[in-house]
Simulated assay, not measured.
Amino acid sequence: MTQKTEIRAEICLPTTNLTADIGFFTKVLGMQMDRIYPADDPKVASFRGHGLAVQLDADAAQSAGRLQFATDDQTFADGKTQLVSPGGTQVSVVPLNPPLILPETNHSFVVRRLADQAPWVIGRAGMHYRDLIPDRLGGSIIASHIRIPDGGPVPDMVHYHKVGFQLIFCYRGWVDVVYEDQGGPIRLTAGDCFIQPPEIRHRVLEASDGIEVIEIGVPAEHVTEIDHEMTLPTAVVNRDREWDGQRFVHNVAEGGTWVDARLPGFIARDTTIAENTKDVAGVQVIRRGQGDPVWAAHDADIYFTFVMQGEFVLEGDGQAPHTLVAGDAFVIPPGMRTRYSAPSDDLELLEVALRGDFRTEL
């Protein structure tokens, strides 16, 4: 066998309560957590300490643990994914840094109402998550309504996400976050947003009581890695830096420019995200304008909208009308004709499209 590159051996163990076990392995056993996923409802977490590496898996069969080797060396074990020792012990071989895979979008028309009482799930760092796209369009996207009921310091660590695109839009309250190469802590207030380019290191510091954000992640399932080496803020400030072709964006709502939206009867405030992601995605805030709403169809692969304020009636070809209010969300598949009828004067929508250079036909 040829010379190996980096190889990490882990003992993989089942768990029936990952949230409680995270506290046990870090506080009681004194191990450090390296990664966790998915963020909205964690199932897998990895730890190191005392000469051991341990992975806890909530979906693993409740039986004895197994040995796993993670490596990017394709020659290790002659490329096999399963090995069996002479004594019958099974050993798994997995990629150390698997490539990011963006699943093909499984298009569907989705309406998610706050009044439906979808469950809030405790996710990473104790934050509460509500899923806004239950079918996740075949795994291509996750949209989460996230809240922290009690304000104050957030028990977070320097970390990063292996994603293709990620948006944090502040719906209510405020939150302080510090980012790699972006200087000191930045306060995100209601109406503001960040995009977190792929693998930018960051840490949530503190939040107001009742903070709520909308988080969009592509793809739906992605890994959160803990960076135990980096200290934030970094000494270097480089606001023009790109991560996988994307620049960090902190868009501030106050003083924003409003122009006619692509949909007649509405106005829009652009967040500059299309420009700074090279049209990977586009994000706008939409309000009621002058004139009557019309029927329209979009060719965006993913077209997601969250109702932040007011109400209207969502009409769609082949669909019963849906009266939507603040806290509701919907997804329109490409080519489907819809109309936003009877909008209230205070209507405000968050529109997220992938790609950002999509076209609208009236």
Rank of each mutant, 00 (worst) to 15 (best):
E311Y: 13
A9L: 06
H322F: 05
M31F: 13
D156N: 08
S341K: 03
F47M: 01
D299G: 09
I168L: 11
W243I: 08
A281R: 00
P198R: 14
R247V: 02
L354H: 05
I267H: 08
R124Q: 13
P334V: 01
V331C: 11
I133D: 04
T305Q: 08
G335C: 02
T323F: 04
G152M: 06
N97S: 15
A20Q: 08
K162F: 09
G245E: 08
E180V: 02
G245W: 04
L67T: 12
D192V: 04
S46N: 11
D345S: 15
Q319D: 01
L362W: 03
A125C: 07
T19R: 15
G327D: 10
R48H: 15
V223P: 01
K80I: 01
D59G: 15
N17M: 04
H50M: 08
G30R: 00
I146K: 09
E10C: 10
E221V: 15
T15F: 06
E254N: 07
Q90M: 14
R287T: 12
T305W: 04
V285G: 04
F47V: 01
G138V: 01
Q196A: 04
T272S: 03
Y303M: 14
G210D: 13
Q284F: 06
D73W: 04
R147W: 04
Q166S: 05
S46M: 09
V175L: 15
I200N: 00
Q3N: 10
L188S: 07
L354R: 06
T26C: 13
P293E: 04
E199N: 11
G289F: 03
R201D: 08
F25P: 08
A64M: 09
E206C: 09
I168C: 07
I122E: 15
Q196I: 00
A190R: 06
N276Q: 13
N238M: 06
Q3S: 14
I7F: 08
A342W: 05
T16N: 12
P38D: 05
Q196T: 03
P86F: 02
L100C: 10
L100T: 15
D131M: 15
F165T: 01
